[in-house]
Amino acid sequence: MPRHLAPRPLQNRSILLTLASALAFALSACSGNAPAERPPLEGAAIGGDFTLTGKDGKAVRYADFAGRYRVIYFGYTFCPDVCPLDVQHLMQGFHAFAKDKPELATRVVPLFITVDPARDTPENVGKFAANFGPELVGLTGSPEQIAKVAKAFAVYYQKRDGTSPDAYLMDHSRAAYLMGPDGKPIALLPAEQDGKAVAAELAKWVR
């Protein structure tokens, strides 16, 4: 072969590197190593520390559950339909997730926070929560405390006029948050759907 047609060592090395890169890319594509999906609420200004009251009348802080995933739902115990149904779906999903992945479920704590502190005493939220399972933590507080935590979690609520001071309904946001071990928001849980949908979303994000 004429000398001027002989491949140079540098050219050989460049060709090999190009082929190796192409092969690595092809293998990666075949194995499905796509970038992990980012949490839909990542970076959202939702959440923050709070202090409320548990069923025994003792103070409960958001920070008490640091290092664990937190499922947070805002509602009220006198709600005639939506709140009980949403909480039922949340806890059905949690229990299904716990059955499938018991070790991971120990890292999740579900919280029910009232938006009706005038009627929802610690005893009332405790009894309400107990209807759905011992894992659900019911929380109440003063009107000022509830207003502060609702604002931190971007939750709307408003009292409707009733037939008497104790007979009224509450309008409120219908949202169930999944918060990470660091206390930051991850995703909304589909409590308006069913337990199966909630379990699937928990399995997607809880690690």
Rank of each mutant, 00 (worst) to 15 (best):
K55M: 09
H89G: 08
F153V: 13
C83L: 05
P110Q: 09
Y157A: 14
Y168Q: 12
T114P: 03
E123A: 11
P84A: 11
P143H: 06
G54W: 09
V87R: 03
V149F: 09
Y168A: 12
F74R: 00
A150Y: 01
L85M: 12
C83H: 04
T106N: 13
K101H: 13
Q92W: 12
Y168P: 10
V155K: 00
A63Q: 14
V60F: 14
D120T: 00
R107C: 13
E103I: 03
I113R: 00
Y168E: 10
M91P: 04
A66E: 10
A129P: 01
A96C: 03
L52A: 03
V87N: 00
F153W: 03
F94Q: 13
I146E: 01
F97G: 10
H95F: 13
V137K: 14
Q92D: 15
D120R: 03
K148N: 10
E144M: 01
E123R: 11
K55E: 08
D116L: 11
R70A: 12
P134D: 15
H172E: 02
D120S: 03
V115I: 11
V155F: 00
P117S: 08
A59L: 11
A130Q: 06
V108W: 04
Q92T: 15
A167K: 09
A96Y: 08
L90F: 05
G138V: 05
V149W: 06
P122T: 01
G133P: 09
Y157P: 11
F132V: 09
N131E: 10
E135I: 10
T77P: 00
T106E: 15
P122R: 02
K159L: 10
D100Q: 14
G75M: 11
R70K: 15
F94C: 07
V60T: 08
D171Y: 01
F65K: 13
F112L: 07
V125M: 02
T114I: 03
L139Q: 09
L90M: 15
I113E: 00
Y69L: 04
Q92V: 15
K55W: 08
F78C: 01
T106P: 08
G67T: 07
E123C: 02
G162P: 11
A105T: 13
S173L: 11
P84G: 11
A98L: 07
T163E: 14
S164V: 13
R107V: 14
P143G: 09
E144D: 05
V109G: 12
H95D: 15
A96D: 09
L169T: 10
D166I: 15
V137Y: 04
T106I: 12
F78N: 00
D81F: 14
G141E: 01
L111Q: 09
R119G: 02
P110H: 06
F153S: 03
L85D: 03
K127D: 07
L136S: 05
V87W: 01
A129S: 13
T51M: 08
G48I: 04
P84L: 08
F112R: 00
A96L: 08
D171C: 03
